[in-house]
Design a protein around this nucleic acid. Structure first.
Lengths: 233, 233
DNA sequence: CAGTGGTCTAGACCACGGG
DNA sequence: CCGTGGTCTAGACCACTGC
């Protein structure tokens, strides 16, 4: 199903496999119409997805230019699981579960005015290049999915989408810079002088229910993110 | 021209003017087709823009739900000028030019592998609620637009787009957390212990030329950003 | 069942780039 | 001039919601 997504993924994997290098021009709309046997509007939907996510730039009269997407690392403006980011960037990384508690009330600082709910709390640390770098607190809405069976290496997103068939739609993320707390110092083996980049997010399903609240605490001295932004007129 | 943009802006201004509150359902595609006298695909283009930017959530079988967009503050994943952000959030803010130098070579740390160019450097401080909070270093490509006439209150983007007719297309932004430098301490009246949130960006025109490099240095203890992210399948 | 949004089509005209 | 991408149309079928 969904022809435009098939074309999108097909072209994207060619770009990521370097069959198209940065600076090259993709096949024209018309060529893709013939290749895939679809209408032009369907081709253009695929191209717009690629453009929105920073893989190509369309230039009228010329064609669709492949951009340098080597550097898209840890973007905050997309919903990617930690595992997806690790995979895409060929990082060496491990995760370790530090704590798991059921029936916890989600703290105020994560909710930004949304109603309080009970959740299952999962605390994990992410170890990048042998060094503990990120602390993740996931509060998963009990009303939607209680009792998550989690092994150390599992991805929560993968469980939600593949195993449970949930349709994750969007997230609202708040970024701040804060001082290291006791847990940061204790688990990440840093002292209070290291600033933390904190991302608090609220993840929604396609029916607008809140699936989870997450607090991701990154060592500031190790944090790096590359965003792609388009200008809309 | 561009009917879908007209519809987008029309609906957006209604949302921002609270004619549609968060939680309400927008008029259906069919109603908008009749109201604007356009085809359904044109209506849907406008709706997709609204959805992409986090103003609405479309729910199949129900309608287009208006989201709570009160809190979209200082998003890094869109290209907005400082002036646009200030206007949208009703902030009290001033800008002051600190330095202006012609024919400067853009430093390595801003370029991430892009070729070195000569630029006009403009250094400004942004004063929010009476307190100097952000230092901006703009390196504008001399080959594209030399000798920018700048008064203290002017917006660079406004000059590029309105006065010069440039078509800004996209930017790549690098986020890091760094220690305060001499200039940070001097102009922002802080000491070295305050961490800085640094955004370095490369702004491209529609023909893919680089218009400018920018380094924005935010006081970490005052920094706050809200992002909207969609999940693509 | 009627109404909603999601996908897809075949065709048209426009604006821009480059030879 | 021709080929490119950008916009728009009228109509079709599907999947889902809610009554």
């Amino acid at each position: 199903m969904k022809k435009y997504l098939a074309i999108y993924h097909d072209l994207l994997s060619d770009i990521q496999a370097k069959k198209f290098e940065a600076g090259e021009i993709l096949p024209s709309n018309q060529q893709l119409v013939l290749r895939y046997g679809v209408s032009r509007e369907t081709v253009r939907k695929a191209m717009q997805l690629l453009a929105d996510e920073g893989y190509i730039q369309t230039i009228r009269g010329k064609g669709s230019l492949v951009l340098d997407n080597e550097r898209l690392l840890f973007p905050l403006s997309t919903i990617k699981s930690y595992q997806e980011i690790v995979d895409q960037n060929n990082l060496k990384s491990q995760s370790r579960i530090l704590k798991e508690v059921s029936h916890v009330l989600v703290p105020d600082r994560l909710r930004f005015g949304s109603p309080a709910i009970y959740a299952q709390l999962i605390v994990r640390e992410r170890i990048v290049s042998g060094e503990p770098t990120i602390l993740d607190y996931d509060y998963v809405n009990e009303a939607i999915t209680p009792d998550i069976p989690l092994k150390s290496g599992d991805s929560l997103f993968n469980y939600f989408e593949e195993k449970r068939g949930f349709n994750i739609d969007y997230a609202v993320k708040h970024l701040t810079v804060e001082s290291a707390e006791y847990d940061d110092c204790h688990y990440l083996k840093i002292d209070q002088s290291v600033p933390m980049l904190v991302v608090r997010s609220e993840t929604h399903l396609a029916d607008n229910r809140i699936l989870a609240y997450t607090e991701s605490r990154h060592r500031g001295d190790k944090f790096s993110s590359v965003e792609f932004a388009r200008r809309h007129h």
